[in-house]
Write a protein that binds this DNA or RNA. Structure first.
Length: 273
DNA sequence: TCTATTTCCTGTCGGC
DNA sequence: TGCCGACAGGAAATAG
């Protein structure tokens, strides 16, 4: 499940593989992947566009083209692969971008949850997917003042706030559990119950863990791999996610798995309060 | 305005 | 061995 570190790794690979290439014919094999505009216009507008570069905002990939921007969200299992034209398609190949070098950029997605939008460069600035995103989880952008202000008066669980992309962009279910364990905060704590001191610790955990995960090339659980098909290595650094049945290495209590905000959630009943 | 719930999807796994 | 239900979950849409 790609979260920010995985999307960043995908972006890194794609920049090398498809920058400066020009898109020709576009084939869509599962319509629901394309959110906007209508399929025919999506295909028509992409034809002849050159990929200038690829950026990232939160978990969104932004293909910067000559006149448009392709906004792509991988959701659960979306992935891009570069294949030589004529390579047999797999059953999970849903969108195919022919390139002018005889290759095809293919979008694969077992669960079909991923979404793509094609918007003009001007529209990008006001696109609803991006305007509601919080700051990137880095030292220079995620301020304590913003977090304190945002969390004040929020009754929801702190984990729900970490997941909803408005407080901070790019955190998903795996890193939310890792961050809250690192910060010693229970996932189901009401956000408004956090002290300024706890929010400060939370911020440090967010910034450090996301940085470490980006440097490790993301986490590979089940199927994630970047554009080269390479896996990340942060799964070796996970301390709590998926460790149900294990004991906390700090206090030796068994980890507990529960549900918070409809998501599988792991925590240590002693170290997190 | 805020929050919780539902929806979209298919592969995997445990239980019988 | 085969079937069936539960589960995995990001973000948008919907409901309250």
């Amino acid at each position: 499940m790609p979260e920010l570190p995985e999307v960043e790794s995908v972006r890194n690979g794609l920049v090398d593989l498809v920058s400066e290439r020009t898109i020709g014919k576009v084939t869509v094999r599962w319509d629901n992947i394309i959110k906007e505009p209508k399929i025919e216009l999506f295909q028509k507008n992409l034809e002849g566009q050159t990929i200038e570069t690829i950026r990232r905002r939160g978990k969104f990939l932004l293909f910067i083209l000559t006149d448009y921007v392709l906004i792509s969200h991988l959701r659960m299992e979306g992935k891009f692969r570069l294949e030589v034209e004529g390579t047999p398609l797999t059953k999970h190949t849903h969108v195919i971008f022919s390139l002018n070098d005889g290759q095809e950029l293919r979008y694969l997605d077992v669960r079909k949850f991923g979404k793509m939008s094609l918007v003009s460069k001007k529209e990008l600035l006001t696109h609803p997917s991006l305007t509601s995103l919080g700051p990137e989880p880095v030292e220079e952008e995620l301020s304590i003042d913003w977090m304190v202000e945002y969390l004040k008066g929020k009754k929801r669980a702190v984990k729900a706030c970490l997941l909803d992309q408005k407080l901070v962009a790019g955190v998903g279910n795996i890193y939310a559990d890792e961050i809250l364990y690192d910060a010693g905060i229970r996932p189901n704590r009401s956000a408004s119950s956090l002290t300024d001191e706890e929010i400060s610790v939370l911020r440090s955990s967010i910034v450090r863990i996301m940085k470490e995960a980006v440097e490790a090339g993301g986490t590979t659980i089940r199927t994630y791999a970047n554009a080269y098909g390479r896996e990340g290595s942060y799964q070796n650094s996970l301390r709590i996610y998926g460790k149900v049945g294990s004991d906390c290495p700090i206090c030796h209590s068994p980890f507990i798995k529960t549900k918070v905000a409809q998501r599988g959630t792991h925590f240590c009943p002693v170290c997190q309060s």
